[in-house]
Design a protein around this nucleic acid. Structure first.
Length: 502
DNA sequence: CACAGAAGCTTGTCCGGTCC
DNA sequence: GGACCGGACAAGCTTCTGTG
């Protein structure tokens, strides 16, 4: 087995070198290479359902397209040469297909989506939206015997019943929610590889029903430090808000929006937000603001406009054409402030954003990372040098579990942060750690309890910090060196082969 | 041991958002 | 307009704890 693995690894590396020389277009970043290695290592070790966690802007699409070129048909099934990429929006489908064609011009690439895009099912790579694949006729085009791998983009959705309805056709181990569903008898196993920036779900239970393990993870903090994402300057503003009375959903673990809006969407706080922006963000070209709910979006926009700032907002009800125009003119720098509520948290690609204001306190590190991640894409064309992140912390009561800039760095939430870089914050954390003795973090807990994984993390010695879950531990892995971390991730993966997720 | 109240968990329904 | 998603919320059920 060891010998076979070495052979396969060598083959995949030679293939990578060969394809790089033959086509010469793609030079993967070092972490993308490591990610590829981790995935191929897992596949050659026998895993078939694996996850990869890479932050927004890290080039997930490039990685999974490259990965497909290194996955060979299973032994004994040379005709299984096709790949299926499942995405959750038309934009992602178009982006992935374009990237697949750009990186591998020799491939036939098709899209299966809606009424406009009908694939034959015979292309080397087909990119499909899950909404379209839910139609049996559309799904039936893809014969499992001819497929060598399936990629799931935004894979934190993969545990939803609709995704499982699709994936169960390609892997009997994925349970179809329909009790009458007859699992297919497949001649060979089809690897399912999930990619996401926030590889977790609030309900927590279901991801393990699709993926066996996470084989690679990169935290956005180290990506910034290594300048794969743009530099960030953090500012935390103390506001007279009291989160202690805000109700928390037992199901999601995060604040209830309605309850939260009673505390956040007030005249005092809204004026403070505008003042903070005038003080710290007015010199920025493009500021994106995250609000609690629709009422908050509208009222905060009004306060900005009353202060003479050209602020606009998008929400789900904004007509598609109007939304495109709003985002397009925002990208062009035609107005400085765009507010939204949950519309632009996932998949929004607006690289010119150079200021993000979070006026939506959260207990989820994922949600916080998604929000501030919108400003971290590199954008040399627009002259963007860095991104300013402004968030608001309560000054009246210290509520456990709130994710803010200080807690993100393991600092006391009451610490004042004014225009500080990641390096400065980590130096401050180190000083605090030295003065306090044993390491302590004030981070929140993410929402996926998994006793098995906690055991694994403990086995790796990664649990020197206060953490309750594998997921939050992964978040803290960013504080160790990259080389060390990758080594630990490889060890972690091996352990998971014996101790799988639920 | 039995009962009542509190706390926590599960389930169903509704809503906002997205896509077909 | 319909289907599906995640999230919010309320109602009902179960479990835990304190008291007689």
């Amino acid at each position: 087995m060891q010998c076979l693995r070495r052979q396969l690894q060598l083959t995949s590396k030679l293939l990578r070198l060969y394809s790089a020389k033959a086509l010469a277009p793609v030079v993967l970043r070092p972490y993308q290479e490591s990610c590829l290695d981790a995935c191929l290592d897992a596949l050659t070790s026998g895993s078939t359902r694996i996850g990869v966690s890479l932050p927004t802007g890290s080039g997930k699409t490039t990685v999974f397209i490259s990965l497909l070129s290194h996955i060979s048909p299973p032994t004994g099934f040379p005709s299984a040469t096709r790949s299926l990429i499942i995405v959750n929006s038309v934009e992602l489908a178009l982006q992935s297909a374009a990237q697949a064609k750009r990186l591998n011009p020799q491939w036939s690439v098709e899209i299966e989506q809606g009424v406009k895009h009908h694939a034959s099912g015979l292309a080397d790579v087909t990119v499909a939206t899950y909404q379209t694949l839910l139609q049996p006729v559309r799904l039936a085009k893809f014969n499992p015997t001819s497929i060598k791998a399936i990629i799931v983009d935004e894979a934190h959705h993969a545990a939803a019943p609709s995704y499982r309805r699709i994936l169960s056709h390609f892997d009997p181990a994925v349970k179809n929610p329909d009790a009458t569903f007859q699992p297919p008898a497949l001649p060979h196993s089809i690897p399912i590889l999930g990619f996401s920036a926030t590889f977790s779900r609030h309900d927590g239970l279901a991801l393990g029903s699709v993926f066996e393990c996470i084989v690679y993870h990169r935290d956005f903090l180290e990506m910034i430090r290594e300048q794969w994402l743009c530099n960030v300057r953090f500012t935390s503003v103390k506001a007279n808000i009291d989160l202690s009375g805000v109700t928390v959903s037992s199901r999601t673990g995060d604040f209830n929006a309605t309850s939260l809006s009673h505390v956040i969407n007030t005249e005092v706080v809204n004026k403070l937000v505008v003042s903070a922006w005038l003080d710290k963000g007015a010199n920025r070209k493009s500021t994106l603001i995250f609000c609690v709910n629709l009422a908050h979006v509208r009222e905060l926009t009004a306060v900005f406009r009353a202060a003479g700032v050209d602020a606009r907002y998008v929400y789900s009800g904004t007509p598609a054409a109007e939304r495109r125009a709003l985002i397009s003119s925002f990208k062009a720098g035609q107005y400085p402030v765009l507010l939204n509520c949950a519309v632009l948290t996932e998949g929004a690609d607006i690289p010119n954003i150079d200021c993000v204001i979070v006026v939506r306190p959260t207990r989820s590190r994922n949600v916080f990372a998604q929000m501030i991640g919108r400003g971290m894409r590199l954008s040399p064309d627009t002259g963007k040098e860095d991104c300013r992140i402004i968030d608001f912390v309560d000054s009246t009561n210290r509520v456990a579990g709130v994710v803010s800039t200080p807690s993100l760095f393991g600092l006391d939430p009451s610490e004042v942060i004014d225009d500080e870089t990641i390096d400065a914050l980590e130096q401050r954390k180190d000083l605090e750690a030295k003065s306090q003795g044993p390491e302590r973090h004030y981070d929140s807990h993410d929402h996926i309890p998994d006793p098995n994984c906690r055991s694994s993390v403990l086995m790796l010695g990664l649990a020197a910090v206060e953490t309750s879950t594998f997921w939050s531990a992964l978040g803290k892995v960013s504080f160790v060196s990259n080389a060390t971390k990758i080594m630990k991730m490889h060890r972690f993966k091996r352990i998971l082969h014996q101790r799988r997720f639920r």
